[in-house]
Write a protein that binds this DNA or RNA. Structure first.
Lengths: 225, 225
DNA sequence: ACGTAAAGTTAATAATTTATTAAGAAATGA
DNA sequence: TCATTTCTTAATAAATTATTAACTTTACGT
């Protein structure tokens, strides 16, 4: 499982189905939209890693949709690939201006689509890894800048809180015992009281306004997706 | 004994018999169905690990059946393999969309069937083992997330109940004496009263709504499959 | 069918674990 | 150094979980 969410936007149902099938077969989690408005609201909901956007659409075209996405704090980091008919020269220019990350020219061969997409995702993942960024659905953690980004805003956490959160989020859904947390976040030689973790957890919950950090009484804590 | 339950669905009795025989010979527990409706109700009853589904069937074809299964909370995790005639191209598309896990093209050679099936089961088992999940017929126990999953829903149990259930389920059908239970779940140094186990057992039965935990009077308890 | 020992049930209570708060110590930075 | 932030602790509150005890029901051997 590739485990990437892809939003596919085109006004032609045939293309939607055809490309959607090919992406699903490759293991992507695909959401479909047939116009720009739906695309934006679906994007807000599903937080895709990548949006494939047809340029030529009635009402709100790809360029406009793309620009709108780039303006949206929650979505502006999303990768965008344009689908464009060969010869639509103008759109390339306008498209890059609007903030596209790549282009694919119609007619589209599935193999080309797949390889371009996997390339762009790989590239962006590599870039993230290099920058030490971990992207969750509800926020991302930038270990390089030492900030948590939620809804497009930087949230600054003190070191212990940041490290504790990073640790829990490094393996979503898995329960970590207090001992595991201590030995990773504090180190084996440091001895601090039991309540220390609770207090940090409390502050993280407060600052991030999330209910994802669950307490498993008698066991430990987990970051739940 | 492979100890896997396989549901085989095809409208042609000959194929059913032929493949069924070959699977049984390999040690699979095989159930047969000759149409989509039977398949679904039998699947609900027997909770197979894997469903082998012919694509071309009258009334309710494989695609539809598969989609229905994926919609059913009780069955949606079940592995599905399609049987498809060579050249039925369209079905591959629709099939993957409906959520198949693999394909086998007719005409089917028993050796191919067996090896594909054992591969897919092995793969899924490896994935589960890695995640520390124990799958029983009526529910699974996820020790990593510390939840019991029944009919697609997470059920949260307090620690003692979770551990007691895990212990009993770790060796289905074997009777554990109260002493064995105490020394494993509580530890040898803790001394608690006789009724304590009963109360925990009662709560597990209540929360999971299962009748699988059997009392062997004068001996102990067992988790029966 | 009866008596008895084992198991089930229930509610009260004990014990444990976590959350919260405020305050002081330690570290950091201007 | 002083001010500020971060970390830890301690005390206490709150919540959850575990156990007990009293009583009822069930199952088994005779």
């Amino acid at each position: 499982m590739k485990d990437y969410r892809v939003l596919l936007v085109d006004d032609e149902p045939d293309i939607l189905e055809f490309l959607g099938y090919n992406l699903k077969k490759e293991g992507y989690q695909v959401t479909l939209a047939s116009n720009g408005h739906d695309a934006i609201s679906l994007a807000r909901e599903t937080r895709p890693h990548l949006i494939i956007l047809d340029v030529m659409m009635p009402e709100m075209d790809g360029i406009e949709t793309c620009a709108e996405i780039r303006r949206d704090a929650l979505l502006k980091e999303t990768l965008i690939v344009f689908l464009t008919a060969r010869g639509e020269d103008y759109s390339q220019i306008a498209g890059f201006e609007a903030g596209a990350d790549d282009y694919i020219t119609k007619p589209i061969k599935p193999k080309v689509l797949i390889s371009r997409i996997s390339a762009i995702l790989r590239r962006s993942k590599a870039a993230e890894a290099e920058k030490n960024v971990m992207t969750l659905k509800e926020f991302s953690i930038d270990k390089e800048r030492y900030v948590v980004i939620k809804d497009g805003n930087d949230i600054l956490l003190p070191r212990k809180e940041f490290e504790l959160l990073s640790f829990l989020a490094s393996r979503p859904n898995r329960v970590f015992t207090r001992d595991e947390i201590f030995s990773t976040v504090w180190g084996n030689d440091v001895i601090v009281g039991d309540r220390t973790i609770d207090v940090h957890i409390r502050r993280i919950r407060e600052k991030l306004q999330i209910a994802n950090i669950k307490t498993i009484k008698g066991v430990g804590y987990k970051f739940e997706t």
